Amino acid sequence: MTKEKTLPQPANTLAMAGDNTYNENSGQQYLAMEACLPLFESLGFGVNATFVDYGCSQGAASMAVMQRLVSQLPTNSTATLVFNDLPSNDFNSLIKLLPSIKSFDSTKVLYPCIIPNSFYNPIMPQSTVDVAFALSSIHWLRQVPPPKSTSESFEEFLRKRDSRNSAASHKDLVEFLNLRGREIKSGGKLIVAAPSPCADNEDGRITGNERLRCALFKAMESLIAVGKLPPNATAGIYPPNHVHTEQSFRAAINETKRIWKIEKAYSRVIPHPAYQAMLESQKGLRDIELQKAFERAYANTVVDWILAVFKPFMKSWWIEEGLDEEACEHVFQECSSLAKIEFVKNAGAQLPVAQDFIFVRLNRC
């Protein structure tokens, strides 16, 4: 009996939506960065240090961390600030933010540089990095998983995807840790903020997250039904990522224990800030229409947030499936509008969109 061949999966080469879109829609990721800042406390450096952000995206959160690290350097010291992400990343938006670091502390000489490469490859010379960090980035897989088959329901696809991606995610994380182990100096630090599966649904966040995704896919199904999207338009757009449980993260650390030791670790629930803003705005309101208006504003924000991640994968797949490139942006905007309406309609706008995170500081042995 001939064993069925498994075709190699393509590398993940798509970054977040460009033109500063990710920066403008990364409020939750920024809160995760702020929750991570205690791990940077009490770090000491010499007069010449190198800091690296693995998966910097468009730089909004990265700049805040780099400012924090620069502030902890001795006066009149120098620092190399390295920003790494995929070659497709919108580095122009990041570059526009660089002057904010220089103006932040003029007593230090800073050398910012950009390295466009997957962090599943070597990024820095051996033993040259003092402190590195990866914020909301290590859940991205090295390769793109197979698309949904025509025989699968979306629910079946997600169940299989989660199981299949678990092994790939573990392998990728071990590779990431081994690569960073070669680049970070003995005694250096690697600080990680990683999305994790929601532990419970006490505040409704699991349901809120599910209704947000459901609204997006129902919007696409509506466009398929009227012929504006190809029949298979939803099959290959799910981003190639897999969130780590604390147990799976610790398993990867255990596999690289000759290199890494956990110094500090904790978990937090990170809500999307738009939910709390909506609740504050609705306090004391008796006007039902005004309450609905704030729900629509919340829906607009969280749909834009998820689309800042999904957009490159959606448009790339749609074009691959035969959608005209010139029509693609127009259809995407229509899909966005429909998803916002659907999120309110399915009562998602009455629930929080939130994500559990694990925060870890590792010491290079």
Rank of each mutant, 00 (worst) to 15 (best):
S281H: 07
L351P: 09
K160W: 12
I115Y: 06
Q72Y: 05
Y30N: 15
H330E: 08
P273Y: 11
L98M: 08
I270R: 12
I206T: 06
F154Q: 13
N209S: 10
L37S: 10
R142A: 08
A297V: 04
V309D: 11
L338T: 01
C56S: 10
G204Y: 11
L81C: 13
L323T: 09
A193D: 09
T21P: 02
L323H: 13
P125G: 08
G204W: 11
L86K: 15
Q143M: 06
H244S: 12
A79K: 02
H244W: 05
C335F: 09
K292W: 04
S316Y: 12
C198Q: 15
L362M: 12
R364I: 05
L141H: 04
S149H: 14
P273F: 10
L179F: 13
L229H: 02
A225I: 06
E41Q: 14
P146T: 04
F332P: 10
R164A: 11
F119P: 02
P38D: 00
S337T: 13
E4K: 02
Q291A: 10
V344K: 13
K345R: 15
G181I: 02
E263P: 03
E156R: 12
A225K: 13
Y111D: 09
N89D: 04
K283S: 06
V131N: 02
A297M: 12
D85H: 04
G27C: 08
H330N: 10
N346A: 05
R286P: 05
T6F: 01
P146I: 00
A64M: 12
G204I: 07
N363G: 09
V174A: 01
Q355A: 09
F249W: 11
P116D: 11
G284T: 05
A235E: 13
R213D: 03
M278R: 14
F332L: 15
K315I: 15
R296E: 06
F51V: 00
K189D: 05
S153K: 12
G227V: 03
V70L: 05
R268F: 06
C328W: 10
F176K: 15
P10K: 01
